[in-house]
């Protein structure tokens, strides 16, 4: 009794039992019947190298029970492409149908990454991005705006279909919703500075000086400062700001900005609203050869505002020729 053993459609197939290769055959174990039966038929169709509609049904069934089974996904993708060849059907239509099924599955299994690999394999065969694709990704981000698989898929998609122009406003909407979304900050960098980058070798990315557009940098510095004012104790935009300024080789143009948040940096740090601002201020002071002032900011970090990283702040003091402080 079973879904396959009793089906007319599968009567020609003899399922192949599990063999785990070890010394103890596992035939006797109480594997749940449904999964076990489906896997037996899967082993049998792969042994015959069968690519058919019923293989799509079978793999869909197994994936519904175990979406992480990597071999099933590979076989399914292959079957879709093989079937299209034999049927002469429209590949575009076949893929869109598959994507629709994937959408629901992805929304259910947020941490699964095989789904995204499969999606990318399908998308590689399309010349244009399906009109619903970005709306679907927005649904994914509504569930988890930092999902790493979805982000790396999205970056691949942006490069594949040259979606650069609409991405910048998109990062703005994500940051308006959550200014602490580090993935969105990274994506903003990718969109602005990754566009002219060779997608395979990455040449041109990072601070190699390939793209230094002063107007763009000015605009981004202003944008980032505004976002920091909304939540000064937020490391993502501070890192972003440092990344921008590194392209110009100096932090000091934003020293006055950092001073808005450091509080009584000459005293006990009363009124300090951001450890990142203190850190930034210390680097500005070091750049201006004001070792004592820099050292005082680092001392406040080590003692009061970020004592868990005391050793790091003391290392920074050491670089300025100053001694370590205790927490």
């Amino acid at each position: 009794m079973g879904r396959y053993s009793e089906a007319e459609e599968w009567a020609d197939i003899t399922p192949i039992a599990q063999n785990d290769g070890g010394p103890n055959p596992l035939a006797a174990i109480a594997y749940t019947e449904e999964y076990s039966e489906a896997m037996g038929y899967f082993r049998a169709v792969t042994a015959r190298n069968e690519n058919s509609e019923r293989v799509l049904d079978l793999t869909e069934h197994i994936i519904s029970m175990n979406p992480a089974h990597y071999t099933i996904w590979l076989y399914r993708a292959n079957t879709i492409f093989e079937l299209q060849q034999t049927n002469g059907s429209d590949l575009q239509d076949d893929i869109l149908e598959e994507l629709q099924w994937l959408d629901n599955l992805s929304l259910k299994h947020l941490k699964n990454y095989q789904i995204w690999h499969h999606r990318q394999t399908l998308m590689t065969r399309l010349d244009r991005i399906p009109p619903t694709e970005l709306a679907f990704l927005a649904q994914m981000f509504a569930k988890d705006a930092k999902n790493y698989h979805v982000w790396s898929y999205r970056q691949w998609l942006v490069r594949r279909f040259a979606l650069w122009d609409t991405e910048l406003p998109y990062t703005e909407s994500l940051l308006a919703a959550d200014v602490r979304n580090n993935s969105a900050w990274n994506h903003r960098w990718f969109v602005l500075f990754g566009q002219h980058v060779d997608p395979r070798s990455g040449k041109g990315l990072d601070e190699l000086g390939h793209i230094v557009d002063e107007d763009l940098l000015d605009r981004e510095v202003g944008y980032t400062e505004d976002k920091i004012r909304l939540a000064p104790q937020n490391q993502s935009p501070w890192n972003y700001l440092r990344g921008l300024l590194r392209k110009r080789g100096s932090l000091v143009e934003c020293k006055a900005f950092a001073e808005e948040f450091v509080g009584d940096v000459e005293g006990e740090g009363e009124g300090c609203r951001s450890s990142h601002a203190l850190d930034f201020y210390a680097d500005c002071m070091a750049e201006e050869k004001e070792a004592e002032k820099a050292g005082k900011a680092l001392e406040l970090l080590a003692k009061r505002f970020d004592p868990i990283r005391r050793n790091y702040w003391n290392y920074r003091r050491g670089l300025l020729g100053l001694g370590a402080v205790q927490a």
Partner: peptide, 19 residues
């Protein structure tokens, strides 16, 4: 290739430009 995956914040991602 690893160098190409280096980011502005000092870290590395899964591919060039990834978080």
């Amino acid at each position: 290739y690893v160098q190409a995956c280096a980011n502005f914040d000092g870290g590395y991602g899964v591919s060039p430009g990834a978080e």
